[in-house]
Design a protein around this nucleic acid. Structure first.
Length: 265
DNA sequence: ATCGGTACCTGCACGC
DNA sequence: TGCGTGCAGGTACCGA
């Protein structure tokens, strides 16, 4: 489900429910999604207040008061953080607050929950935020890379937060072929790419993310940016620029949607 | 350091 | 109805 715009939306919708809340109890059911010992993690959480929430890439960090460390959540493909939700078959964590309850649901169990005293390694190794990095720094990181464009955009050490949907949408808007080699792209085209990524992500956040199947925010509300997708999920439909059918192929083991005419290598 | 491939899970849509 | 297949917003880890 969740790439940068979806995780940003979840974080924002979570904030009014979680900031200042005292954690009264924490229960972990499916241990696959928990990094660390369940009892130890519960002990670290209980008795602390959540002082602030912070998104980095696709991670959500909950900061705890009094040097209580950080509780970090990654939603994987199908993770959901819900306030006031009920407990179901795929509910793997239940956090009781002084006001309300926070649950973590995740059918595929690709998500991760982790308590750590400092910023966890998973977050520390992320590349810069695409909406924060300047073009000069982007170009420095970009121009020598020999990876295919699609794979590079998906690489979280390059930029944090772009996933399969927004990689495809970015490349279409920048008119760059997903198999293009980064190092062979000129500076002006790299500028278009940089602008396209920021534009797509900003618009998606403004539309509360893309709900392609079951993504919802912390209050169960769907996003609407799926209605604005230009290539993702539009296989066989006409390219909005040239009318030729949108093609789907596999790049970096991920379904990749693009227009073979508009996007140049 | 960088790149590409595989593993990890469940659910759903589809064809037969 | 049931069964096999392919596909799905993710990262970690491995070898080259």
């Amino acid at each position: 489900m969740p790439e940068l715009p979806e995780v940003e939306t979840v974080t924002r919708s979570l904030l009014p429910h979680l900031r200042g809340r005292l954690i009264r109890a924490a229960e972990f059911r499916q241990l696959r999604v928990l990094r660390g010992d369940p009892d130890e993690t519960a002990r670290r959480l209980v008795g602390h207040r959540i002082t602030q929430l912070e998104r980095r890439g696709k991670f959500i960090m909950m900061h705890l008061d009094g040097g209580g460390g950080i509780f970090t959540v990654h939603l994987g493909m199908t993770g959901k953080l819900l306030v006031g939700g009920s407990v179901g078959k795929h509910t793997h964590a239940i956090v009781q607050l002084d006001r309300g309850v926070l649950t973590y649901d995740d059918p595929r169990q690709f998500g991760r929950l982790e308590w750590s005293p400092e910023v966890p390694r998973s977050v520390a190794r992320l590349g810069p935020e695409p909406l924060v990095i300047g073009f000069d720094e982007f170009w420095t990181k970009f121009h020598h890379r020999k990876a295919r464009m699609k794979a590079l955009l998906l690489d979280q050490k390059f930029l944090g937060g772009i996933g399969n949907i927004y990689a495809d949408e970015t490349l279409f808007r920048a008119a760059i072929h997903p198999l293009a080699i980064a190092a062979r792209i000129s500076k002006p085209r790299a500028r278009r790419l940089y602008d396209a990524a920021r534009e797509v992500l900003s618009e998606a956040i403004a539309n509360r993310g893309s709900s392609v199947s079951d993504y919802v925010d912390a209050e169960g509300i769907r996003g609407s940016f799926q209605l604005a997708h230009r290539v993702y999920g539009r296989t066989g439909e006409p390219c909005l620029a040239c009318g030729r059918p949108v093609r789907r192929t596999l790049v970096a083991q991920r379904g990749t949607h693009f227009c073979a005419f508009c996007q140049k290598r």
